[in-house]
Design a protein around this nucleic acid. Structure first.
Length: 587
DNA sequence: CAACGCCCTG
DNA sequence: CAGGGCGTTG
């Protein structure tokens, strides 16, 4: 139950090459929402102090180590990998063509565009919540685990220090956790971490056995912790991350194979003698690009707290995802765009054989998988080989950043800090890469506000000049867009099309080709189906207006503009990746 | 007044 | 695309 294609018949369009009638690609996914099973939490055995101190003898050392190891290993298993592996993965990316179920009426009706009034409204507002819950719980487990580790290490350090200093000041350091421990970077849980410090036994009478145990356990714990963190992050985090891109999406995915069927059903009714290479490839390959293209951050009305009016949408959603920043930043920036665009050489997120053994050898504090950073842009020909790849966790990174109320300055400061961007990396001028990125963004939003733009060009040092230049870009984009659509609308009229409803823009339309050539030269990007819907509606609006002779009115386009301006979609979070512009420039 | 969008022009 | 003019909006 994934496609509900409706076939449009050609009526009186003998040679409607400009806008071929085709099955709507934005068919509505009907799958039931996918929910994550609740994550087990709080299952970690308590490494109580008593437990530790009771066994300070050599003969228990082995047992102790084994226990610690088993504990750690038990925790290193991803909480519910299958939950992520199925639900989230399934929910990810197969729904790119999420139509907004606006069956565009054939007749032009100056209705208020029912943004979010369609299927988007029908989804439970908490659709993403189970996923978020899973992510949050994984995170909490990590935090808890690190708490435990930190406490252990503190105690051992104290033991050592106490022993070394002849137990002179056992009481004084009670309230002073030792700095420099791994857990220190996790300041978020510091409030709860120090509670149990009080039951700490005094350290008198510790033998050298204790020191040996201390050293051994420290070593074991450090290594185990490293493995745990890597393991958990690698298995759970990326999928958890992928959720963030998806969590605002309206409906879950039909299924892993739905996409192919989807496109099979979505072929243009009019048989195509020579499908363009672009379409062939685009239909088959590049799930990542698909993910990038199809994952809006805001589905109007589909998510609590999301707004449909532009300008405030980004700011409105970011705070709702109260995710600690500390864990997200290292990973996302370097590889995000590449992954999103499907250019990664590796099977990134553990579909099957993503071993990434090297990451296991790194300390827990290091950013994971640095080797993923070296990615190359693939040609679109190569992309079709990647269709089996798992979908990448698009948009995890900056989606987690708090968006200042009005503060692009704040936001940028955060970004600069978190992503370690040197001021030099903050572009003071817009580059061709930025232009390319902006063009791709146009597929999602025709009327971006300046605040929106600021949140998506995080590597740009915004000034009034920069802002107006970006605004101007989109204005130019619109101009070209409307001119093209109007041209084809008039052409349709001349060719005898009578019913505007039969006009649809599909990927084989001449109109689409013209637009794609302009905004997506080189076909680096798979145009989201939503854009086709918008273009279709625009075409129909222009057609109807011209047909009705409204173009006599000097401002006859204004109503159309107003309609179209309300059809903006969300831009995938991946576009926020700082590397985006740079990577695009290279492609 | 500033911000924005459209239009026109080069 | 960029500049400039003009109208609208808040």
């Amino acid at each position: 139950c994934c496609c509900c294609p409706y076939v449009l018949s050609v009526q009186g369009a003998p040679k409607a090459t400009f806008a071929q009638v085709c099955v709507a690609e934005g068919s509505v996914g009907c799958s039931p929402p996918l929910y994550l099973s609740p994550q087990p939490t709080g299952e970690f055995p308590q490494l109580s102090d008593q437990h530790l101190w009771d066994q300070l003898s050599d003969q228990h050392l082995q047992a102790k180590r084994a226990r610690v190891e088993s504990i750690i290993q038990g925790m290193s298993l991803p909480p519910t990998p299958q939950a992520f592996g199925t639900s989230l993965e399934a929910a990810f990316g197969h729904e790119r063509e999420r139509g907004r179920e606006m069956p565009w009426e054939s007749k032009r009706k100056p209705r208020v565009p029912q943004q979010g009034a369609g299927a988007a409204k029908q989804v439970a507002p908490s659709e993403g919540t189970p996923h978020a819950e899973g992510c949050r719980q994984v995170k909490e487990q990590l935090c808890f685990l690190e708490q435990q580790l930190r406490r252990l290490q503190e105690k051992f350090s104290q033991v050592c220090n106490s022993v070394d200093t002849a137990q002179t000041q056992e009481g004084s350091e009670k309230a002073h956790p030792l700095p420099g421990k791994p857990g220190d970077r996790l300041d978020k849980d510091s409030a709860t971490a120090s509670k149990e410090e009080e039951d700490r036994d005094d350290t008198g009478g510790l033998s050298s056995a204790a020191r040996a145990l201390s050293q051994a356990l420290k070593h074991e714990l450090a290594e185990a912790m490293s493995r745990v963190v890597d393991s958990v992050l690698k298995t759970a985090w990326p999928k958890a991350a992928s959720h963030f891109l998806q969590q605002h999406r309206r409906l879950p995915a039909p299924g892993p194979d739905a996409r192919r069927e989807h496109f099979a059903a979505g072929k243009c009714r009019k048989p195509l003698s020579k499908p363009s290479p672009r379409n062939t490839l685009g239909s088959l390959g590049s799930p990542q690009a698909e993910a990038l293209s199809g994952a809006p951050a805001r589905s109007p009305g589909s998510h609590a707290g999301s707004f449909s009016s532009k300008g405030v949408r980004k700011n409105s959603q970011a705070p709702s995802m109260s995710y600690p920043l500390g864990l997200a930043a290292p990973i996302q920036d370097s590889q995000l765009l590449s992954q999103l665009l499907g250019y990664s050489q590796h099977s990134l997120w553990g579909s099957s054989s993503c071993g990434t053994p090297s990451s296991l050898e790194r300390g827990p504090l290091e950013p994971l998988n640095l080797h993923w950073g070296t990615v190359k842009l693939r040609s679109s020909v190569m992309r079709q080989q990647q269709q089996q790849q798992p979908l990448s966790p698009a948009g995890m990174g900056l989606a987690l950043l708090p968006a200042g109320r009005d503060g692009c300055g704040e936001l940028q400061a955060v970004v600069v800090g978190r992503l370690s961007l040197t001021p030099r990396q903050m572009q003071e001028a817009l580059t061709p890469g930025h232009l390319k990125k902006a063009k791709l963004m146009f597929f999602f939003t025709r009327y971006p506000s300046s605040t929106l733009l600021k949140t998506y060009f995080l590597d740009v040092q915004f000034s009034r000049c920069i802002t107006s230049q970006l605004i101007k870009w989109f204005s130019n984009f619109r101009e070209f867009y409307y001119i093209q659509v109007e041209k084809f609308a008039r052409q349709a009229l001349l060719e005898g099309v009578v019913d505007a409803g039969t006009l649809r823009v599909c990927r084989d339309s001449e109109l689409f080709r013209a637009l794609n050539m302009h905004y997506n030269k080189g076909n680096d990007f798979e145009v989201p189906g939503r854009f086709l819907e918008v273009a279709s509606l625009t075409l129909q609006e222009f057609f109807s207006a011209v047909k009705a002779g409204k173009d006599a009115d000097p401002s006859w386009k204004k109503p159309i503009y107003k309609i179209i301006s309300k059809l903006d979609s969300d831009i995938p979070e991946g576009f926020k990746a700082v590397r985006c512009s740079q990577e695009l420039l290279r492609s």
